[in-house]
Amino acid sequence: MTITVQYFARLREDLGREGDQVTVTEGVGTVADVWMYLHREAPPPRLMAAVNQSHARLDTPVADGDEVAFFPPVTGG
C-alpha cells in the first residue's frame, strides 16, 4: 500500500519537508496510523487532516493510492 502525505503551513516548517511517502503492507489502516507510522508518536493536539482533499478525522480509513494531508487549524477569511 502506497500513501502520499503532504504537510502545510507551520507543520511543514516544523517538520522541514513538504511531504512523505508511506509504503507498507500491513498495520496502517487509518489517518492516525499514517501519522504514527511516520512520526513514531501520537498526533499532536489540534492536528487537522484530509484524505483525497476532503476533511478527515484521525479514525478515517486510508487505502492504497490515497493522498493524506496534515495541517494546523485553518486561519482563512
Partner: peptide, 28 residues
C-alpha cells in the same frame, strides 16, 4: 458561508511583523 469558510477552508496566514520576523497565526 463566511463562518464555514473561516473554519473549514484550507488557508493559513503567516504574519510579517514590523521587526521583520514572521509568525503563523495560530487560530482565527
Amino acid at each position: 458561508i463566511l463562518e464555514r469558510l473561516k473554519h473549514e477552508a484550507t488557508f493559513w496566514k503567516r504574519e510579517r511583523l514590523t521587526d521583520g520576523s514572521e509568525q503563523w497565526v495560530e487560530k482565527n
